[in-house]
């Protein structure tokens, strides 16, 4: 089963900025152990643009879809046999990133 693993940062209490080497090493391990599907860090929420084309006219707006203290700083997609495995990896990931981690399954097949 695939899980979306979100890295959550906090604007008022940001995680440390020196985590990249540790994250790279963790990624190498995820790949070696067969859990890694995708990973990517995200640019600041200020760089976000929202498009709404549900109505008559397309509306383009600057900024994230919701302003909040906590925001998505990066994502992984992992392939894991069950939630216990995903949670164990997430426990490590939170330490490695020095940030909170949300684990959420993709809808099954």
């Amino acid at each position: 089963m695939q899980y979306l693993v979100s890295v959550i940062d906090d604007k008022s209490n940001p995680g440390s900025t020196d985590r990249q080497p540790a994250i790279s090493a963790f990624n190498e391990r995820l790949i070696a152990e067969g859990y890694w599907v995708f990973a990517g860090g995200l640019a600041d929420t200020d760089a976000a643009t929202v498009i709404d084309n549900r109505g008559e006219q397309v509306i383009v707006s600057d900024g994230p879809f919701v302003e909040s203290k906590e925001y998505l700083a990066g994502v992984w997609v992992w392939e894991a046999p069950d939630l216990d495995v995903a949670l164990r990896l997430a426990t490590e990931a939170s330490k490695v990133c020095d940030r909170k981690i949300e684990v959420r399954p993709f809808l099954a097949g």
């Binding site: 089963m1 069950d82 939630l83 216990d84 164990r88 684990v103 809808l107 099954a108």
Partner: peptide, 14 residues
């Protein structure tokens, strides 16, 4: 069901 919480004994470490 959605998150696949497993139906088995936790690992020794857990």
């Amino acid at each position: 069901k959605a998150t696949r919480i497993p139906y088995r004994m936790p690992s020794t470490e857990d």
